[in-house]
Nucleic acid binder design. Structure first.
Lengths: 241, 241
DNA sequence: TAAATAGTGTCTTTTAGACACTATCGC
DNA sequence: GCGATAGTGTCTAAAAGACACTATTTA
């Protein structure tokens, strides 16, 4: 290693710096299927295509804080399950300039999903088509409310695919499944969530047994209202995992 | 949103940019225990403490490429299992300036581990103490060859903890366990790797059954040599998962 | 009582743990 | 044969899938 290289190694000013953004996968359920909130781009590059909400990370702002801020600013949502997903750093992922993006996954329950749509009407809920491609997440397809395919900007379809993959992996041993549901929910709804994310039907008795045996949920004693059939019992998630 | 804010949203030059680095967790096995290769810092900040090898991401270099380059430059290793771990972006994680780091996990088999030590003698193999803290990864402790505790610079002990956590999570359904072993290995060695990473003893017959039933490994017909007891059969990993 | 969904009982299959047993090598 | 580790057979326990059955509500 030459003296110059050694210096470079310790002198950050010697390197041109990339921009860093945070992009959010705002994930909720639409008609029982996983859906992400997207914005249509009206400028170059990728004008007309759909993109994840995002923004630049400020110089005095932690990554997690940037994600929370963008969640607030772009979706009007104060709190949600928010976790870092992956960082995307291909050189030409943005044709204008070097931008590295740190993708975050935000899980919105029904109400928060609806509120985001109201707070920011330009957000479009796009259903994510989740084929059962085994554990290895194949490419995902995105479609608008009328079933039309949506073309995504940048590498955002990769980011979406990564989000689904992450969800699948964590569904069985973490609390992510509950983050998409309101405080009180029926076991059937919980199973719907799992089936939507996994893209595969599950066995009802086995599912109920698993959920109850894990001690994750507690029966409230209350029941669903407004059904035209036997109302299901409402359960609550036991916060401390 | 005001006009100025809107502009800022699309004008990256309006934001001061952070530096971005890649840090590597060079993980191998030392005396059957997980160990990471560390460098002692000789400058401020954290002079004297131990740190993960790392370097700045160049403006025309993808994140993955930066990780590979640093693997080459700092450890003299051409190829290894390399995967992105997590991005660390607290504001003051480096007291000098804003640096966001993208941590990568490199899994080195015995031979590569030894070669890295030869190529870069300043690397110290530090054994990572892995208590069985359930699935939630508690803090990890690092110790030098004489069993003395090593203090780590920056947030690097968080990064190490994340690496162990990731390994544990993927051990059972991915090929990471094999990345720490040479081409041909005995079932006992494979079980040792799993036990070292999980920090818990495993059942021998069950372990063998699992590995063979999954179709991940094939018997070579050859046997270990140079033992003073019954030599074990050598197996090979079936690359395509 | 019919329709619809909630919720359960139980049999089978699969998978994992326990543990002792046999096998095979060098010496 | 001894010491040491490789490798297996088998019982038991726990978990998951299949599938039909009962239960409870509204209309």
């Amino acid at each position: 290693m030459t003296e110059a290289e050694l210096l470079n190694d310790y002198d950050p000013a010697a390197f041109e710096r990339p921009s860093v953004t945070v992009d959010l996968v705002l994930l909720g359920l639409l008609e029982g299927r996983p859906a992400a909130l997207l914005l249509q781009r009206d400028h170059h590059p990728f004008a007309g295509l759909w993109a994840l909400p995002g923004g630049f990370v400020r110089i005095d702002e932690a990554l997690d804080d940037a994600a929370e801020r963008i969640l607030r600013e772009k979706a009007g949502i104060g709190a949600a399950h928010l976790e870092q997903l992956y960082s995307f750093g291909a050189v030409k992922r943005d044709p204008r300039m070097r931008i590295i993006t740190v993708a975050y996954l935000a899980l919105l329950e029904e109400r928060a999903f609806a509120e985001a749509l109201k707070a920011t009407p330009s957000l479009l809920p796009a259903i994510i088509d989740v084929p059962w491609s085994g554990e290895t997440g194949g490419p995902v397809e995105t479609m608008g409310p009328n079933g039309e395919a949506l073309a995504l900007a940048f590498d955002h379809s990769d980011i979406l695919a990564m989000a689904i993959l992450r969800l699948r992996g964590k569904l069985d041993y973490s609390d992510v499944g509950f983050a998409l549901l309101p405080d009180r929910f029926t076991l059937r709804r919980l199973q719907d969530v799992h089936e939507a994310i996994l893209g595969v039907p599950l066995n009802k008795p086995a599912f109920r047994r698993r959920m109850l045996d894990k001690g994750w949920i507690t029966a409230t004693g209350d029941r669903q209202e407004g059904t035209s059939f036997r109302p299901a019992e409402l359960y609550r998630f036991n916060r401390p995992l």
